[in-house]
């Protein structure tokens, strides 16, 4: 194995098709749908029927959902979940999971928090922003998923100037 020259970069592909964008001017976004008649959003996107019982629309727009939201609640996984969960290449590490309230869509969306975030740093109501991170990899590819990254209101340095901008905005 060690003697074989492996390519340094594997293709980076979404772990699920059509649920989120990888980039864009404002960063990645979840792809949902919006009913053309009643305005109800769905995630994942729902292009066949409207979940509103009073609506029989069959016309929907694919829309990018809000990139920012607030923690409705959060938890973590201290033990490795069963398959089809696949641990990251370095082995399982506990990770946090968020339920995030999106204001415009009036809905709560789940997602992992970015790697390394500890629940002790979190509080309900905290601002978070959507990012894309590696979920796991195999010999063929690196598989990506959406995650939520906490935004610290008083962050003055470090990783994400754009986060700070959007928080202020």
């Amino acid at each position: 194995m060690a003697a074989v020259d492996r390519p340094k970069t594997k293709p980076r592909v979404p772990a699920v098709d059509g649920w989120f964008t990888l980039d864009g001017d404002d960063g990645p976004a979840l792809i949902g749908s919006r009913c053309q008649r009643c305005g109800t959003y769905s995630f994942p996107k729902q292009l066949n029927f409207c979940p509103n019982p009073a609506c029989t629309s069959q016309d929907f727009d694919e829309v990018e959902l809000s990139r920012h939201g607030r923690l409705w609640s959060y938890t973590n996984n201290c033990y490795q979940p069963p398959a089809p969960y696949v641990p990251p290449s370095g082995g399982f590490q506990p990770f946090a999971i968020a339920a995030v309230e999106l204001e415009a869509e009036q809905m709560v969306v789940l997602g992992q928090l970015t790697a390394g975030v500890d629940v002790s740093e979190l509080h309900v109501g905290q601002d978070v922003v959507l990012v894309v991170e590696t979920l796991f990899e195999d010999d063929e590819a690196e598989y990506l998923v959406w995650k939520w990254r906490p935004i610290e209101p008083d962050a003055t340095s470090g990783s994400a100037p754009r986060d700070q901008e959007t928080h202020d905005a």
Binding site: P51, N52, A54, C55, A104, Q106, V109
Partner: peptide, 20 residues
């Protein structure tokens, strides 16, 4: 009853209360 605004197992999101 729609919109169910508490996240349900095994869903990824709640219903949207934007319209109702």
């Amino acid at each position: 009853t729609f919109p169910q605004t508490i996240i349900e197992m095994p869903n990824f999101a709640t219903d949207s209360a934007a319209a109702v």
